[in-house]
């Protein structure tokens, strides 16, 4: 993210002071209260954005510019957060052993894949959001059946991360894996060591039956106690603006949220993304249930 901040400073003369952490920043801002120096919170995953809203540290953005640029599905209905970029949760497949070029999320539970799928922990936030989307689509009972089916198809106990999933496919441990769009592209473009793992696999953009591909967001929220509110709003508008959006595409390998901004070439190579139209707030609403289902079916055991 650092290059983005530097570009913002160069563009506006506003210095950006940063703390980055994987979790808990909303709790820190909440505890800091009125003296908190935080103006905006940037985070990946809808879960973290919702957690920030729930902890009461955000305020409505009220930006005409953001409302024009960002599609309704990728903003909070009450204006408490907006997406800045998107990633999709997709299938990595063995080039050699998987001839098909399209797949549905539902098919991942089909017994024909028994012992052939690798995935990281079902409690990881990326999987949590995917499973929540399945619940939102099909209801809890059907989602449980699906999750059981997926569990039965796993080649090994869930562990590692998305890049290990590609590595395990390359090693022949499994044929299919589930991962985020940018991990594969980074292996392919940026890391010579891991290029063979990308070479052994291909990315398929799966869809829900009768729907699109599950996407998640990196988003940003304005803090209620922001000491520099005007600069905070300026920053958020800048992040979805015409200058920053191509940087999202080429540096973090995410899908730009702004229409018309070119997608990174490697990512574009996966095919045209048809993002599922379901609003992310519905995904967020089913997160707890998804987490409970993972426990219930013993997905990580």
């Amino acid at each position: 993210m650092q290059p983005l901040f530097e570009a913002f400073t160069k563009d506006t003369g506003i210095k950006v002071n940063v703390i980055s952490a994987s979790s808990g920043l909303e709790q820190r801002i909440k505890a800091e209260g009125g003296n908190s120096p935080a103006d905006v919170l940037l985070t990946v995953d809808i879960a973290r954005l919702e957690a920030a809203v729930e902890s009461g540290i955000t305020q409505a953005l009220n930006s005409k510019m953001v409302e024009e640029v960002v599609p309704v599905a990728y903003r909070d209905p009450n204006g408490q957060w907006t997406a800045a970029a998107m990633r999709a949760r997709v299938v990595y497949a063995s080039k050699v052993r998987v001839p098909q070029t399209s797949i549905t999320y539902e098919e991942l539970a089909d017994p024909k894949w028994k012992g052939k799928i690798c995935i990281r922990s079902g409690q990881h936030m990326y999987n949590n959001a995917l499973f929540a989307a399945v619940i939102a689509k099909h209801g809890e009972a059907k989602a449980e059946e699906w999750l059981k089916g997926l569990k039965a198809n796993l080649a090994q106990k869930p562990s590692g991360g998305d890049r290990e999933t590609a590595r395990d496919i390359a090693a022949g441990k499994c044929d299919l894996g589930i991962g985020n769009t940018y991990y594969w592209a980074l292996m392919n473009d940026k890391d010579a060591d891991k290029k063979p793992w990308a070479d052994a696999t291909k990315v398929i953009l799966p869809t829900f039956q009768g729907g699109g591909t599950h996407v998640n967001v990196s988003g940003v929220a304005l803090i209620k106690t922001a000491p520099n509110k005007a600069n905070g709003v300026k920053f958020i508008e800048w992040m979805v603006g015409a200058q920053a959006q191509p940087m999202h595409a080429d540096m973090t390998y995410e899908y730009p949220i702004r229409a018309g901004v070119p997608i990174n070439k490697t990512i574009a190579g996966y095919g045209a993304l048809q993002a599922d139209p379901m609003p992310l707030s519905q995904v967020a609403a089913n997160r707890k249930k998804a987490s409970a289902l993972v426990d219930k079916v013993g997905f990580d055991n």
């Binding site: 979790s23 729930e54 590692g160 997160r287 707890k288 987490s291 990580d300």
Partner: peptide, 20 residues
């Protein structure tokens, strides 16, 4: 977490972050 060992500490985190 990386090794997929579901310990109590890991369950503290999933309870906080996923079970909200």
């Amino acid at each position: 977490e990386y090794f997929g060992v579901q310990t109590l500490t890991l369950s503290v985190f999933t309870t906080w972050l996923n079970r909200s």
